[in-house]
């Protein structure tokens, strides 16, 4: 147990963070180079004002047309993304680890709130899965890659929830939790989860094209 835990929280953690950070940076640089070479006409229209205008308007729930026409999805996806990022970042136990390892400490959220937010993430994942199965529109376009992305994100939250409540076998669960979390981090640059890295730019481009060329909104 000790050797396994030390391995997953030591070398494996460095590897996962390394792949996530360096991988994302590399993908961004490579994509930017490709855009410079092949999408010069698109880059020419990029504008800070129109980009931020579009991004901000899409970050407001029920503001964009897409949000208004898909209310259930809007609630689920906003709750999901906020909790997905806020819970692990501000979790007491995680901040403790930063503090122990690097002496870094910052604000935390109470465990009870984190517990609720974790349940929200799990519930949202189930909602997404339900849509993929029940809605013909969504089922028709769902591929194994989409299930894979969903599973990668669900796993650390499910195991984290079980580990926190010390359900089933804690020792196994905590190692599983760490490993699944690391898989998620490492998967971000190279799977569908890469929308975390690229979405801000695809949205920014559409904002710039609609603002600068068509003089129209894109939300």
């Amino acid at each position: 147990m000790n050797a396994a835990y030390q391995f997953v929280t030591g070398p494996l953690a460095w590897a996962a963070w390394g792949i996530f950070l360096l991988g994302s940076a590399w993908r961004l640089v490579a994509m930017y180079r490709l855009a410079r070479k092949k999408d010069a006409s698109a880059i020419a229209y990029m504008s800070w004002g129109y980009s931020l205008r579009s991004i901000v308007n899409w970050l407001i729930p029920f503001n964009a047309l897409g949000w208004r026409k898909n209310p259930a999805m809007t609630i689920a996806t906003f709750a999901f993304h906020v909790c997905l990022i806020a819970t692990p970042v501000f979790l007491v136990a995680h901040v403790m680890l930063w503090d122990q390892a690097f002496g870094v400490r910052y604000a935390t959220i109470p465990d009870a709130a984190a517990d609720g937010m974790t349940m929200l993430v799990i519930a949202a994942c189930l909602f997404f899965a339900g849509r993929r199965l029940a809605m013909p529109d969504v089922r028709a376009i769902t591929t194994p890659k989409d299930w894979f992305a969903l599973a990668i994100v669900l796993a650390p939250f499910l195991t984290g929830f079980l580990a926190y409540h010390q359900a089933i076998d804690y020792d196994t669960m905590i190692v599983l939790h760490v490993v699944t979390g690391e898989i998620m981090l490492a998967a971000i640059p190279f799977t569908r989860l890469s929308h975390m890295v690229f979405a801000v730019f695809t949205r920014a481009y559409m904002g710039s094209e609609f603002g600068g060329v068509r003089h129209a909104r894109d939300w």
Binding site: Y5, Q6, M96, D99, Q100, Y164, Y170, D171, V175
Partner: peptide, 25 residues
């Protein structure tokens, strides 16, 4: 105080390869 406990206990457990390391242990 918290780091005093955490670091002393976990540090020794790590060095010896024995004893609890993870939170819930």
């Amino acid at each position: 105080l918290m780091n005093a406990y955490h670091k002393q206990c976990i540090g020794c457990h790590k060095a010896r390869g024995k004893g609890p390391l993870a939170c819930g242990q």
